[in-house]
Design a protein around this nucleic acid. Structure first.
Length: 678
RNA sequence: GCCGAUGUAGCUCAGCUGGUAGAGCAACUGAUUCGUAAUCAGUAGGUCAGCGGUUCAAAUCCGCUCAUCGGCUCCA
């Protein structure tokens, strides 16, 4: 058999016949030595369908999953990996995204090499590539300091300079286990036990004196890790469980060249410049104050104005779509939370009870029970359904102290919450309407793209959920049916559902391509039962309604935070707290005209600010520009004489003088269109 | 909650090994009246996050608390 040639298909479709054991590197060399020097790793895909999975790789093996495609047998391998069967071969150069992940993973090995040379007592966890770079989880009594990180980075440069080859070796699982146990490498032992089974050969990668249990692949040698940086260190729990010991997660990033590395840090700076916490301060939109408490938001006048605009839009849209606006109390008796089940299932996230004369009260973490009480307050007939109650409801949730983050993760927030009570046969059309509404919300606020996740329960952990398996099955079924009918692609995530039912989560994609969880449409078959909700059917009998719980902004605070970052504070005209800034060229001569212009603009419903200071015109223009005001109108002798304004548009600059009436029309039209551009 | 870092004027920050706080911008006052991103000068502004300790002396050293930042975890 060994004499038999194997077929290698190249991307252009051509086929080469080579001896088994030939490596991708050999093939690259045979094409051109320059190609061989440029390639990093190879992607192979068996030409004949795979019959069995090649290895014990479990799905949880994230490092394996990263290089994915087990179904097709497609995988990324070392250039030095001997080819043993007919495959389609793709030689991946540095520009390939898969190659980037490989070099980052190799960088993690380089970092581990450096760490062990400097701090030999350190025990290793794992070191995967991430979207941003890589990390290595390690255990060491003393935490690494900033200087340690600098030393690690310097040592890494030495390891790279040594240009050590990454060599793959295999040995028996038993030997690996006993060696690692002897060295006290408890984490490596765990990984071997978890990702391999008795009798397997395990793979090790060596570079110089460093060996790591690793699935690979790697770049050919450490010298290929050309541009890297150790960025930070943070705590992480072993296996993500806070009951376990705390590891140190040392973060870094790596690229094939310094240019990409620089671009990466430039992008981080751009993200920082868009940070809603930074812009919130600069543009005076909101604050969080230590005396008041963490995670509690103060909306300043300008942020408040944007919020009002968002809320007005949302309320109008709800009413147009057949919802009715309701209001429910912020605190309610503890008894209610016992009935709803929140006391048991959600208690640890609720603020503790307040003792009053008559009973204990708790702040609401959700609006559902309030809406249910409204439903229950009068008998309902099938003719009344669906009932759609909407509320911009303030809820309070106890978030752990280390978890707050600007507007994105807070303790008190406003949900644009609604609950739909309907008959089972109405459920699919109601969910479909919710999904359409969510789509409309995202479009209206300028987000073009979104991703959908369907969260279902974990059947192995039934005690964490309420409802019978049949309930879950039908509920998940109707959510899927709606998504399928609309042709919306989605990812199903078992175990991610709320305790009371499955849900559709919609994550929007912002201008920088980041994902944000906002809209959610949740099925709830728990509360109707607990509150014994019913309606009288056509048959005169009592029936139980079905309940849908949905929030589209999700949280007004979070949505606002994402909006700030999406627009980098340069809000479209309809949302801008100040739409027009007025600059009189001379604050003596032109002030009267400027005031008259202001009055006219305000009469047209525009939000205007007039800078009356005795400062030079340029300074006033600059101040308005820094505040990212859409239009700045400059007025001097020429304008005053002809009822005109000189228009300076954000992002465009000086557009010259136009008649005041013409500008008013333009501005009004822009606001009415809710357009993003100016 | 956990690991690490940070907290100085409204904002951005400086303040070495302890000797009693400083700049730029903003604010205020005055001068300037200007054609598309920072006019000039002056004035005022700080319990150095809070509490406690060490010391003749603490922004600085130590402890605790609070908050923020980067992560873990969790979620709207």
């Amino acid at each position: 058999m060994s004499e038999q040639q194997i077929k290698i298909q190249l991307p252009d479709g051509s086929i080469r016949e080579v001896a088994p054991g030939t490596t991708p590197y050999d093939i690259a060399m045979s094409i051109s030595p320059r190609l061989a020097a440029a390639v990093v790793v190879a992607r192979i895909k068996p030409l004949t369908p795979v019959t069995a999975t090649t290895d014990a790789g479990e799905e949880e093996n994230s490092e394996a999953a990263m290089y994915g495609g087990q179904e097709t047998g497609e995988r990324v391998v070392d250039l030095s990996a001997p080819l043993t069967e007919d495959v389609a071969l793709e030689l991946l150069k540095e520009s390939d995204e898969a190659a980037l992940k490989v070099v980052r993973h190799s960088a993690a090995h380089v970092m581990a090499t450096a760490i062990l040379e400097l701090f030999p007592e350190t025990k290793l966890g794992h070191g995967p590539a991430t979207d941003q770079g890589f990390f290595y989880d390690v255990y060491r009594e003393t935490p690494f300091s900033e200087t340690d990180l600098a030393a690690i980075e310097a040592k890494m440069a030495e390891v790279v300079a040594r240009d050590e080859k990454f060599v793959r070796e295999e040995e028996s699982r038993e030997k690996g286990l006993s060696d690692y146990s002897a060295q006290g490498e408890f984490m490596k032992v765990h990984f071997i036990e978890r990702f391999t089974k008795p009798g397997d050969e395990i793979s090790l990668y060596k570079n110089g004196g460093f060996t790591d249990f690793c699935r690979g692949p790697h770049v050919p040698s450490t010298g290929r890790v050309k541009a890297f940086k150790v960025t930070s260190v943070a705590g992480a729990y072993w296996l993500g469980d806070e009951k376990n010991q705390q590891l140190q997660r040392v973060y870094g990033t790596a690229f094939f060249n310094a240019k990409d590395l620089d671009a990466h840090f430039k992008r981080l700076e751009e993200i920082k410049a868009r940070d809603h916490r930074v812009l919130g301060k600069q543009l005076d939109l909101f604050s969080i104050q230590e005396v008041a408490g963490a995670g509690l938001i103060f909306w300043h006048p300008k942020g408040g104005l944007i919020r009002k605009t968002m809320e007005d839009w949302m309320r109008d849209e709800c009413i147009r779509r057949g919802y009715e606006m309701v209001y429910t109390p912020h605190i309610m008796r503890r008894e209610l939370w016992k009935i709803s089940g929140h006391e048991g299932f959600y208690g640890q996230n609720m603020y503790p009870p307040m003792e009053l004369d008559d009973a204990e009260y708790r702040l609401k973490p959700m609006n559902c029970p309030g809406h249910i009480l409204i439903y229950k307050n009068s008998p309902k007939s099938y003719r009344d359904l669906p009932q759609r109650y909407a509320e911009l409801g303030n809820v309070y949730r106890y978030e752990r102290s280390g978890t707050m983050h600007g507007l994105l993760r807070v303790r008190g927030f406003t949900q644009d919450d609604a609950h739909i009570f309907c008959m089972p046969e109405q459920i699919e059309s109601e969910i479909a309407a919710c999904v359409e509404f969510a789509d409309e919300v995202l479009k209206a606020f300028g987000f073009a793209e979104f991703k959908v996740e369907l969260s279902t329960w974990d059947p192995k952990d039934q005690k964490s959920y309420v409802g019978s398996p049949e309930h879950w099955e039908t509920a998940v079924g109707s959510l899927k049916k709606v998504l399928d009918a609309k042709g919306i692609p989605y990812r199903e995530i078992p175990g991610e559902a709320a305790f009371y039912g499955p849900k559709i989560d919609i994550k929007l994609v912002d201008v920088l391509g980041r994902l944000w969880q906002l809209s959610t449409v949740q099925f709830d078959f728990n509360l109707p039962q607990r509150f014994e909700l019913e309606y009288t059917g056509e048959d005169g009998e009592k029936h139980r309604p079905v309940m849908v719980h949905r929030a589209l902004f999700g949280s007004v605070e979070r949505f606002f935070g994402v909006l700030i970052e999406h627009y980098a504070g340069a809000f479209p005209m309809w949302l801008a707290p100040v739409q027009v800034g007025l600059v009189p060229i001379s604050s003596d001569k032109h002030l009267d005209y400027a005031r008259a212009v202001k009055a006219k603009l305000e009469a047209a419903g525009l939000r205007v600010e007039l800078d009356e200071r005795n400062d030079p015109m340029k300074a006033k223009i600059r101040d308005f520009a820094v505040q990212k005001i859409p239009f700045v109108l400059i007025m001097g002798d020429k304008e005053a004489a002809s009822e005109a304004v000189s228009v300076r548009t954000r992002g465009k600059g000086d557009e010259g003088s136009v008649a005041l009436t013409a500008f008013v029309e333009r501005a009004k039209a822009l606001v009415a269109s809710r357009g993003v551009g100016l």
